[in-house]
Design a binder for these strands. Sequence first.
RNA 1: GGUCCCUUCGUCUAUCGGUUAGGACGAGAGAUUUUCAUUCUCUAAAGAGGAGUUCGACUCUCCUAGGGACUACCA
Length: 519
Amino acid sequence: MTERKVRVRFAPSPTGPLHIGGVRTALYNYLFARQHGGDLIFRIEDTDSGRFVPGAEEYILESFKWLGIKFDEGVSFGGDKGPYRQSERRDIYREHVKQLIDNGTAYLAFDTPEELDAKRKDVENFQYDASTRLAMRNSLSMSEEEVNSLLESGAQYVVRFKVEPGEEIHVGDLIRGDVMINSSILDDKVLYKSADDLPTYHLANIVDDHLMEVTHVIRGEEWLPSAPLHVLLYRAFGWSDTQPQFAHLPLLLKPVGNGKLSKRDGDKLGFPVFPLEWHDPKSGEVSSGYREKGYLPEAVINFLALLGWNPGEGHDEIMSLEEMVKLFDLTKCSKNGAKFDYVKAAWFNHQYLIRQKDEDWVPAFDKLLKEQGIEATAKQETEVVRMMKLKVVEYTDGEGGKKKRNISFVSDLWPLTEFFFRAPKEFDREDKFVRKNWTETTAGEMTRFAEVLSTVEDFTVEGIKQVVDPWVEEQGLKPWNAWRVCLVGKGQGPDMYELAAFLGKEETLSRMYYAIKTL
RNA sequence: GGUCCCUUCGUCUAUCGGUUAGGACGAGAGAUUUUCAUUCUCUAAAGAGGAGUUCGACUCUCCUAGGGACUACCA
């Protein structure tokens, strides 16, 4: 085999939103292509007109755009091996089907779907293959005249692949090694149906991969059982010498229980299984997406990459796309299915979130405020970034500088920052923190404390400190927790001086008097 | 039912015949902290079972069990 430029493809069917498992398959193809300086092709496999869903193609494209997975060629990307939508390649398939019929590796079959159904009901485990095809209505069992007259009468037919039994077929797989099966267990797969003048997946797939000069087929494990058929097809066309290398990826499994990951699992456990929110055009049903849930695309990519692949010892789990391109290795992909650990997905998001610049959080945070009906004042507006830095993403610079706060999503910020924008209205007396820090004497202490605070001229952290510290010392009090109850309403928030300075004298005192009165 | 694939802590995984079986998520404990949280430290936690091969097996072979996929004129 001559050295060929690496070319891989991701070829979804536009039958709905892109499943998260599909995203991972695309990602692995992307990593592999980039690493080898090859091309990644985006092909649309719409050979089943009955399952076409409007908007799906656009959805898939937008998903990859958001995720940062770029294609070199294909639908909407151009290229000289097109068209890249299978429904636009009818002539090509027709011609290739004819080739197989002419060289005797395929034949016409006139059995109607109803007849086949009946047969399957009649005969247990019926299979259309060498042992049964002569008893069926096809160009192998019927005379040429019969076939021709059927054709002339406009009868519908399918073209089936003629599988010769009793041969050991080897499929070389980059992940699984040599997989061998006996051709006798294969059935005569339908390659083409005259009813809609379209091929089935198997034929279209082989023809396209060959014509588009695909060198590696990286796809889900669900295709492994049909890989031998594909090997046979390459041979029937005489393309064995350029047959792509296969790599069948393990599947993504349910987080709990058995089976592969499905949309229902996400609904049940509260995590998305689609990259973007999807509005089903038929049912009107809305499925949540990672983007809308507040995930960062880098986090989704990183998380997904590690579900079935691992760079080995000594590597950080947090990796950029560029690093992954360098480290990726198909042969190091695991063989067994991976349970979808959505808790770890949130952790990855946390990791990426805290690595962002504070400014990057502002748009999402602003949106949060609007949702809460907060009209940020000019001061709050300008202070948002500073406050987030202060307590929400407070961190230290330099070596070992780790950012803080256990935030997985920007929306987690609201319960932690609400008090900056809204005074506590009600106090939960059952709350452990409130109960512990608000006793009979507290109201009196707070009243005296408020009086002291009202004398502070320079209401900044330093200014308040200058007045309060000596007073606290003199009184022998620890007013902070009770003070916190007044201003925050619960045991949360930043340093009290910082908070008071942020709120300002007026707001601070008003919250204190309100608490004294209410509690 | 048949065919194929798979099997290391609860989860994702490292190990490419010789290790106290390592890491991460999650869990638990402690320290720090004027609250919550952070951060740091520590702990518990695994080779499905059984036969071989070998001086030696998590690693190779076989069997059993379990899991998964496929078995359409869907992809």
